[in-house]
């Protein structure tokens, strides 16, 4: 499966590159749409940072954006992220009279999906900065691994993600470019292990770096 994904991606990349080589050099163009494939690094904040303090490079993002009028775009983002950290000896209590003291490993993995609106200030240029806002939800699983015991909770939430970033074309008429973006994410998600842990309104910062397929 992984090989098929890899081969398909390479073929799409080659097709886009061939097309771009036929274009004359000029001042550039405003795309009709673009698709992003980004590597995502997560920095947890607030209560979420107390749960897992480590920044995590385990994440990726797929997105599509369509120009509506001028520099205004609308689209979507689907992501996958995981944050994790090991901790030393701590005691956890169950509701049934049980308690365990040991080292533990905490992790949260999430699948965010959002609708996005953004505004590109100079959409026809090689470097096209933008501001945007994502609105949507997440599916999250919060795991507390204490030895062989895996305590976990699953939660859905509502999320808001203001973002700044830039689309950088590889050439004035290139069908490929790079994406660099930074966003703050607020969610209504919470981590709740009775007797042991509560974190509410999970927040994080995300740094995205990726490739962009640009469609005229």
């Amino acid at each position: 499966m992984k090989k098929i994904i890899l081969i398909l991606t390479v073929l799409v990349l080659m097709a886009g590159t061939t097309q771009s080589q036929d274009q004359p050099v000029s001042l550039g163009f405003t795309p009709s749409s673009y698709y992003t494939f980004s590597w995502n690094t997560t920095f947890t904040m607030g209560d979420f940072n107390k749960w897992v303090g480590n920044a995590s490079p385990a994440g990726f993002d797929l997105g599509g954006r369509y120009f509506i009028k001028g520099g205004l775009v609308a689209g979507f983002n689907i992501m996958w992220q995981r944050v994790s950290q090991s901790y030393g000896y701590q005691t956890y209590y169950g509701d049934d009279g049980s308690a365990i003291t040991s080292t533990n490993y905490r992790f949260t993995w999430m699948v965010p999906f959002q609708g996005v609106i953004a505004y590109h200030f100079i959409p026809d240029k090689m470097v096209s900065p933008y501001i945007g806002l994502g609105i949507g939800g997440d599916y999250m699983e919060h795991h507390l691994l204490v030895q062989e015991y895996d305590l976990y909770k699953t939660r859905w939430d509502f999320s808001l993600t203001p973002e700044i970033g830039a689309l950088v074309k590889f050439g004035s008429y290139s069908s490929w470019g790079a994406l660099v973006a930074f966003n703050y994410k607020y969610t209504t998600n919470k981590i709740e292990f009775k007797n042991n842990w509560t974190s509410k309104n999970l927040q994080m910062l995300n740094l995205k770096v990726g490739l962009v397929l640009i469609v005229r």
Binding site: Y89, I100, T101, S102, T103, N104, V146, Q147, E148
Partner: peptide
Amino acid sequence: LLEDMAIY
């Protein structure tokens, strides 16, 4: 962490 000490 399965090989660490644990008190249950």
